[in-house]
Simulated assay, not measured.
Amino acid sequence: MISSPHKLAVEELTVAFGHGRRARTVLRGVSTGVRAGQTLGLVGESGSGKSTIAKAIVGVHPARAGRILLDGEDLTGLRRRELGAVRRRVQLVSQDPYASLNPCMTAGEAIAEAVDPVRADARKHAVTVERWLETVALDGSAAGRYPHEFSGGQRQRIAVARALAVGPEVLVADEITSALDASVQAEVLNLLEELRRSLTLTMVFISHDLAVVRHVSDEVAVLCQGELVEQGPVRDVYRSPRHPYTRRLLASVPTFDKKEEAA
Rank of each mutant, 00 (worst) to 15 (best):
M1L: 12
V10H: 04
E12H: 14
G20R: 12
R22S: 15
R24H: 12
L27M: 12
S31H: 08
T32I: 13
T32M: 15
G37K: 09
Q38F: 04
L40Y: 02
G44N: 09
K55P: 04
I57W: 01
I57E: 03
V60F: 13
T76F: 01
L78N: 11
R79M: 08
R87K: 15
L92K: 10
V93N: 01
L101I: 09
P103K: 11
M105K: 15
T106Y: 00
E109S: 13
A114K: 02
D121M: 05
A122D: 01
H125Y: 10
V129F: 00
E130R: 15
L133D: 09
T135V: 07
V136A: 06
A137G: 08
Y146R: 13
G152T: 11
R155I: 06
Q156P: 12
A159I: 07
V160H: 02
A161L: 06
R162D: 01
A165Y: 03
G167A: 10
L171H: 05
A173S: 12
D174Q: 11
E175T: 13
Q185M: 00
V188E: 04
M203C: 14
V204N: 05
H208F: 01
D209C: 10
L210T: 11
V216H: 04
S217W: 01
S217Y: 00
D218E: 11
A221C: 08
V222T: 10
C224Q: 15
G226F: 00
L228K: 12
Q231V: 13
Q231W: 05
Q231M: 12
V234M: 05
R235N: 08
S240H: 15
R242A: 14
Y245A: 09
T246W: 00
R248P: 02
A251W: 04
S252H: 08
S252A: 15
D257K: 09
E261D: 11
A262W: 01
